[in-house]
Write a protein that binds this DNA or RNA. Structure first.
Lengths: 218, 218
DNA sequence: CGGAGTATAGTAAGCACTCACTTACCAGGA
DNA sequence: TCCTGGTAAGTGAGTGCTTACTATACTCCG
């Protein structure tokens, strides 16, 4: 009886009994997707396997078929974030061949846009740092420091070429990233999606403007 | 059975059983102090009443004599932080009568020093924002936005006087606070107490220098 | 004595994680 | 075409532990 043959053709999810059967890899990816959302919202400790399961429409046991511990699931999320092709590599390729002001505009736009598009990354980052996950180092190194280093080198060479003043390039890089990233962080910190909204382009212009002018030789 | 009568007669404190007796207010303040540390370390959800009690050398029940719910304890912490006299009022009084470059130096020094002295505040702030505590608004408003506003007004007047370029003063204020505050936040985010350490004075000089030069009229 | 301060010993609910079991699906022989 | 067994995918009902929070009795001091 109860042949579920109908499911195949129709996409209706009215039957609450069993979820759509999935291949292992599909399911695994789905779990990671749901878990990302919840870890970003509630942190590692705050997110529960129960809710992840519920939101994925499966039982908790399925999670443990794919990930032997909650921590493994977290690790999988970080891996997927660090190796995903939409990340730093994209930025670095965008920067290829660019010079002068445009470099800074691209970096600033990238950071702002990236965060607006997907605030979960920043939240994951902040949580992982606060919770002192040992895993957070991986996170930090691949997504945090890498291009701070790039910027530092870039500024260093501009100073050597005489285009910029002799400010400590590491500090200068931090100053620039700080202006831009703090703008995004503050939207989370002050949960103020609205309290301070300017067109993204205007924000970028102002920051790049202040920074480049500030670094200009007299 | 197990009559603990032995304790009664002797006054020796070799028995680790009972803590020093305290007055209600003393005990309350002590609990808040310990709890602040743990909430800052682990967040609201992560911190447990059990550990707070253990670290204060008392039983959980004592906590609940003073605070009817865990949330009340959290609220007490925030109150104590917001009304504490070492906060914004101190900064604003330091700024009184100051002008020009010095204003920015004072603000930057204040932020850096404040955080170095007590990083738990920044952690509390970040946690309360991430965990979407309804209480965080109080936190934010009294300690976050207030002097962002002050800075904005100050910059506005400098622009009107013709000392600075006509950049959106709100954006300029954010840029400056961003540079400075991000420096502190990054020490938590990248848990890099060491990876990037410059003398505080140098950091302040560099940031103020870049910012003021960037805002100068041509 | 009375009451503030404290401990012991709970409670019910929630947590990560497990296990014995059921279902859906596919391959291949009749 | 239908039957059948192997297996991956999924489950419900746990386990033992931890959580926030409580009921109640004991101890000290004014």
């Amino acid at each position: 009886m109860k042949r579920l043959s109908s499911r195949q053709g129709t996409k209706q999810k009215k039957a609450p009994s069993r979820p759509a059967r999935m291949s292992g890899e599909e399911r695994k990816a789905q779990i990671v997707r749901v878990a990302t959302e919840l870890f970003a919202r509630d942190g590692f400790k705050g997110a529960t396997t129960r809710e992840i399961a519920r939101k994925a429409g499966i039982s908790e046991a399925v999670i443990y078929k794919h990930f032997s511990r909650k921590e493994d699931l977290y690790k999988a999320i970080i891996d997927s974030r660090c190796t995903n092709p939409g990340g730093e590599p994209r930025l670095l390729s965008m920067l290829k061949g660019k010079e002068g002001r445009e470099v800074f505009v691209i970096i600033a736009s990238y950071l702002l846009e990236e965060h607006r598009r997907d605030s979960s990354f920043l939240r994951l980052l902040m949580y992982s740092a606060l919770e002192q996950q040992s895993l957070s180092e991986l996170f930090i190194n691949t997504r945090g420091l890498e291009f701070l280093g790039f910027l530092e080198t870039h500024i260093q060479s501009l100073i050597e070429k005489g285009c910029m003043r002799g400010v400590d390039p590491a500090l200068a890089a931090r100053a620039f990233i700080g202006m831009v990233e703090h703008y995004s962080i503050a939207q989370e910190l002050y949960n103020a999606k609205s309290f301070f909204s300017r067109p993204e382009r205007k924000v970028v212009e102002a920051f790049v403007d202040i920074f480049l002018n500030g670094m200009k030789r007299r």
